[in-house]
Amino acid sequence: MRLAKATALLKIARFGVGYAAAVFAGVMGIWATMEISDALTYGRLPLFILVFPESILTTLRLTLDVLPATLLLAAPFTLLATWILVRQHWNRWWHFAIAGAACPLTGIVLLQLATWGRFFHHNEAAIALLLMPTGMISALVYWLIAFRSSEVAA
C-alpha cells in the first residue's frame, strides 16, 4: 500500500515538474520567436544573444510569474491531452510533439470562438505557425520528464 502511494506521488511529481519545465520552454520559445522577429524587422541582433546568462534568469522569473495563469488556463487542456494520449496508448515522443504543435492552433481558434473573433487584430495564422515549434519543444520537454523514465522502466 505504501509503495503504491509513493509510486503515485512520484508520478504526480514528475507530471508537475514536467509541466513547469514545459512552461519554461514555452516562455523561452515565445520570447526567442519575438526577439528573432524583431531582429529581422529592425535589422539588429536578437537581445538574447547580447545578454544570454541574464536572459535565462529573466525568463525564469517570467515563468514563475506566468505559471499561475498557465495552471488556470492551460493545465486543464494539458491534462485532457495527456489523458487522451495515454488512453489511446499514444505515449511516444512524436505523439506529444504533434499535440504540442497543435496547441497554438487550437488555442487561437478557441480564443477566436470565445471572443467572437475580436481577440486578434493581426494575422493570427502566422502567429500560430511561428509558435508551433515552441509547442513541439514544450511538449517534448514535458514528455521527457513526465513519461520517459516510466517508459524506460517498462
Rank of each mutant, 00 (worst) to 15 (best):
S138W: 03
E54K: 12
A74Q: 04
T106N: 01
F24D: 09
A25K: 03
L79F: 12
L131Y: 04
A102S: 10
H95C: 04
L80D: 03
A32L: 05
F119E: 05
H122K: 07
F52G: 00
V23C: 14
L105K: 01
L105E: 06
L79V: 14
P133Q: 08
V51C: 03
M132W: 01
L10A: 15
T7D: 10
I137A: 15
R92D: 12
S55Q: 15
M132K: 04
V152W: 04
L64F: 15
A126K: 02
I145N: 02
A99M: 07
E35H: 13
T78L: 11
I12C: 03
T115F: 02
G18D: 10
G26R: 02
E151A: 12
A128I: 06
I12G: 00
A21R: 02
L57S: 13
M1P: 10
A153V: 10
R14D: 11
T59V: 14
F52I: 01
A4W: 08
A154N: 14
T115K: 02
L71P: 03
A126Q: 07
T82Q: 11
L80P: 00
E54W: 11
H89E: 14
L73K: 05
I137P: 00
G26D: 10
T33G: 05
V66R: 01
A32P: 02
P68R: 05
L40M: 11
A146Y: 01
A139K: 00
N91M: 09
F24A: 15
G29D: 02
F96V: 02
M28G: 12
R118P: 01
I137Y: 03
W116Y: 14
E35G: 04
S55T: 15
A4C: 09
H95V: 01
A125T: 10
G117N: 02
V27S: 01
T7L: 11
V17S: 04
H122A: 10
S138Q: 03
E124Q: 12
V86T: 14
W93E: 02
T82P: 00
L3H: 13
F119N: 01
Y42P: 00
A102Y: 00
